[in-house]
Design a protein around this nucleic acid. Structure first.
Length: 476
RNA sequence: GGUGGGUUGGCCGAGAGGCGAGGCAACGGACUGCAAAUCCGUCUACACGGGUUCAAAUCCCGUACCCACCUCCA
């Protein structure tokens, strides 16, 4: 069984053949840190995190690079509006992003290069492109440097477009471009509107790097002139990835062997208005469900499928996930288990996470049957297998990462609640033994009103927090 | 205009010529003092119109509607 991946460049699912046996180099476009991360941003990160975990589980030694863009027009504009240095805004938002990644258990990359830390590499690359006749300094006084699209016949190959078929750029300002589709590799410093801290010296004058050149320079530095997989959101295919590939190849690199793009997650056809944007920010969504449940929701759809985000669907996914957790909780000590063939086949088929999750649910039904039949050994084996599958998807509830949030005081609180609920449950058991069911039910209702669910099991009653009732009501 | 994708049961969401993915919800049954959890069962869907085929949700042609990208975007 070999891993097969959908490659945007060829438009088909094909066998993954790494450049070096047993190794995989992956570059994923991270974010421009200019605002609070929302569910859409994180979907990309989660999808490529699953890719990474699966490569590792399949025996690959993975080098995983995900950049951050910490200088661009928006950052400069926003920070100016907010009256603070651009690097402070970028840094704050970067920390916000880290928190979001962490909340979703997205593993830290091998390295996370920032654009501002790689200006010399970019200047070197731009110089090379100029030397080779694929880039030129603007024919006006802007100080910009552009990539010459017409000098690279393969331009458009990634997205299967011909230059002449592209809509003429409506962007009003052709500046000193030879062709409207030429894109900026270097942006000259605008003395009157941009802080000097946002500029770097270069052979063609002070300025800052264009967006596309960043990724080419950083991917080249950390993964070499040829690497296996380049990923990002669908919207990045053009122009970002097309441009990246063109400039890297024009500079003599082979660049990525496979291009993977995740689909969008959107809301009911509406634009992300301010109010919607707020509720879809990661901290906002995490007031409704736990991070592990949000991750399950994202993983339960295929990464190339467009997802229409809704809290209803999210809650539904959370319910499904709780079924998984309940099974795991009922098994005392899982025996380390292997990944079922169906699960492996699912992920090998272009990361078929929905089928992989179906395999998990199949195992759980089987495990529940074992539990019902009091076959604890068999159940423990199933639980081990389930845990192994969940772990590959970053969804193992037993992973210490997920309990990180509960600090020592939370643990003590849990213990305290356990004792208190225990007292009530003892009273209820006494009432039940006396067949005083009215009292027994009254006690259960009181406990339920506090958000705690009671289950009577052969081993006695047990309580769990009722996570399905949202602790937070929607604001108006 | 160009490029890419979509329309699946009450809902979410897979599949991509034949074998009822999976989940959520609902309903019936078992279990329970009653519940909950769990198990068993029920709900047999693929936008529309043609065509190919022994066989089509899946392939082909056409129609409708939707979305993304071609400008910053995960």
């Amino acid at each position: 069984m070999t891993l097969r991946l959908y490659d945007t460049a060829t438009g088909e699912v094909r066998d993954f053949v790494p450049l070096q046996t047993g190794k995989a180099g992956v570059y994923v476009c991270g974010l421009t840190v200019q605002g609070e991360p929302h569910v859409g941003h994180v979907r990309s990160a989660v999808n490529f995190d699953v890719l990474r975990r699966w490569l590792i589980a399949s025996g690959y030694e993975v080098t995983f690079i995900r950049n951050i863009t910490d200088i661009d027009d928006k950052i400069l504009t926003k920070s100016a509006d907010q009256g603070r240095p651009w690097y402070n805004l970028a840094y704050d938002m970067k920390r916000e992003l880290d928190r979001a990644y962490d909340a979703l258990h997205v593993l830290p990359p091998t390295y996370e290069p920032a654009a501002t830390g790689h200006v010399p590499e970019m200047i070197e690359l731009i110089s090379l492109l100029i030397e080779r006749g694929h880039a030129y300094a603007a024919e006006d006084a802007s100080g910009d440097v552009y990539f010459d699209v017409r000098s690279w016949p393969a331009y458009g190959e990634l997205t299967h477009q011909g230059i002449d078929d592209m809509e003429a750029a409506t962007d009003a300002d052709p500046r000193g471009k030879r062709d409207p589709r030429d894109f900026a590799l270097w942006k000259g410093w605008k003395q009157d509107s941009e802080p000097v801290t946002a500029s770097w010296p270069a052979p063609w004058g002070r300025g800052r790097p264009g967006w596309h050149i960043e990724c080419s320079a950083m991917a080249g530095k950390y993964l070499g002139d040829a690497f296996d997989i380049h990923g990002g959101g669908v919207d990045l295919r053009f122009p970002h990835h097309e441009n990246e590939q063109a400039q890297s190849r024009a500079a003599g690199s082979r660049f990525a062997s496979y291009w993977m793009h995740n689909a969008w997650i959107t809301t009911a056809g509406e634009k992300m208005s301010k109010s919607l944007g707020n509720t879809l920010s990661i901290p906002g969504v995490l007031q409704r469900v736990r991070g592990i449940e949000l991750r399950y929701y994202m993983v339960s759809a295929h990464y190339r499928s467009h997802v229409e985000f809704s809290f209803e669907a999210l809650e539904e996914a959370a319910s499904a996930f709780r079924r998984i957790e309940r099974f795991l909780e009922r098994v005392e000590t899982p025996t380390p288990g292997a990944l079922p063939d169906a699960f492996v086949a699912a992920l090998d088929d272009d990361l078929g996470t929905p089928a992989a999750i179906a395999a998990i649910h199949d195992a759980i039904r089987q495990g529940n049957v074992h539990l019902a039949a009091d076959e604890s050994q068999a159940a423990a084996e199933v639980a081990g297998s389930v845990a192994a599958m969940l772990s590959v998807l970053g969804l193992d509830p037993a992973d210490p990462h997920w309990s990180q949030e509960s600090s020592g005081s939370t643990e003590r609180l849990t213990t305290a609640v356990d004792v208190l609920v225990g007292v009530l449950l003892d009273q209820r058991q006494t009432a039940r033994a006396a067949k005083d069911f009215a009292t027994a039910d009254q006690i259960r209702d009181q406990i339920a009103a506090a958000g705690i669910e009671i289950e009577d099991t052969p081993a006695g009653p047990r309580w769990t927090l009722d996570t399905s009732t949202s602790s937070v009501t929607e604001g108006s």
